[in-house]
Simulated scan of single mutants.
Amino acid sequence: MVKIGKIELGEFPLLLAPMEDVSDPPFRAVCKAGGADLMYTEFISSEGLIRDAAKSKQKLDIFEYERPIGIQLFGSDIETMRASAEIATQVNPDLIDINYGCPVKQVACKGAGAALLQDIPKMVKMTEAVVKATHLPVTVKTRLGWDENSKNIEEVAERLQDIGIQALTIHGRTRVQMYKGEADWTLIGKVKENPRIKIPIFGNGDIDSPQKALEYKNRYGVDGIMIGRAAIGYPWIFREIKHFLQTGELLTPPTIEERIEICLKHLQFSVKWKGERLGILEMRRHYASYFKGFENFKSFRMRLVEASSEAEIIQILNEVEQYYTTLV
């Protein structure tokens, strides 16, 4: 049984990655239904929380059915991170996660996210401040290092464990790699093999099929896997991996009816949570993923992206279902 503090996550948990502008409550709802064992909010700016910024505050929205769920924070100032951990604790998540992995310029160039991989002493101090600021378990998500010449994840893992983090997720790339090339899990496996490491180690990067999940589980010995991009438009990935790990059999891919049903749920929650205009706007990035690989979908996607009302989108989705059902 994998545990983070007192949170029991099963034998081999599957985690939903915190993705900016993706991992909001509507998306998390469909992933939870799809079998995700632990989810995180989008990463939240500690500066934004301290300033009481509306966008940052809205990202604190969590719902009972999502549990266990972690709130992920990022920032470059130790005191601000400490204070933001106190604010996040008040909304009663199951844990607090610190982002030391985000590679995007807006974050890393301001000294936050993956930038902290260049200053391990500061990373340690910041983490310690967050651990002391909350009664909740604190976890960390990070990368192998800043670049090819500074892959310091083995040292990072030991030092962060020593000051009290209760789980570590490692993305198998450096900051310089961004999301390019293939994720290298070799060092993730080395961290897991280190006899000093007692906390759960989760691997992240390029897991996009049940077969790959099993291969990496066996090869690198991780306690669980975090899935990000492969879940976008395909929340079934979690149940497919679980089924394959248990039985060695691949589940039949979701039918067109299932895809429509989940896409509709996602849309309706998005509209309910953000209002019709913004809810529709933010769903536009998901349609292509929900129907990836479907021939002749481009014209439907264009209409879905241009639609301005929930009723219009529902009508188009009904047409999509009719069109592809008649093709079978």
Rank of each mutant, 00 (worst) to 15 (best):
G111D: 06
V130S: 02
K122W: 12
P121M: 00
H135S: 14
M126G: 12
M123C: 08
E128K: 15
V124Q: 11
G113E: 00
L116V: 07
K125N: 14
L116P: 04
K132S: 14
A133S: 11
K132I: 09
C109R: 14
L117I: 02
L116I: 07
V107A: 13
I120T: 07
L116T: 08
M126C: 14
K122N: 05
E128C: 00
V138G: 01
K141R: 12
H135P: 12
T134R: 04
P137D: 00
L117Q: 05
A133M: 07
A114H: 07
L117V: 05
Q118Y: 00
G113Q: 01
P137G: 01
A133I: 03
I120G: 12
A108H: 02
D119C: 04
V107Q: 04
D119H: 12
K125W: 08
L116A: 03
T139W: 13
E128Q: 15
K122Y: 12
V124P: 13
T139N: 11
E128R: 15
V131N: 06
K110R: 15
G111T: 07
A129W: 07
A115S: 13
V140L: 04
V140A: 10
T127H: 11
Q118T: 04
V138E: 09
A114M: 10
L136T: 09
K122D: 01
M123D: 08
A115T: 02
A115R: 03
G111A: 03
A114L: 09
A115F: 07
A129C: 10
V107I: 15
P137Q: 04
T134V: 10
A108G: 08
Q118H: 01
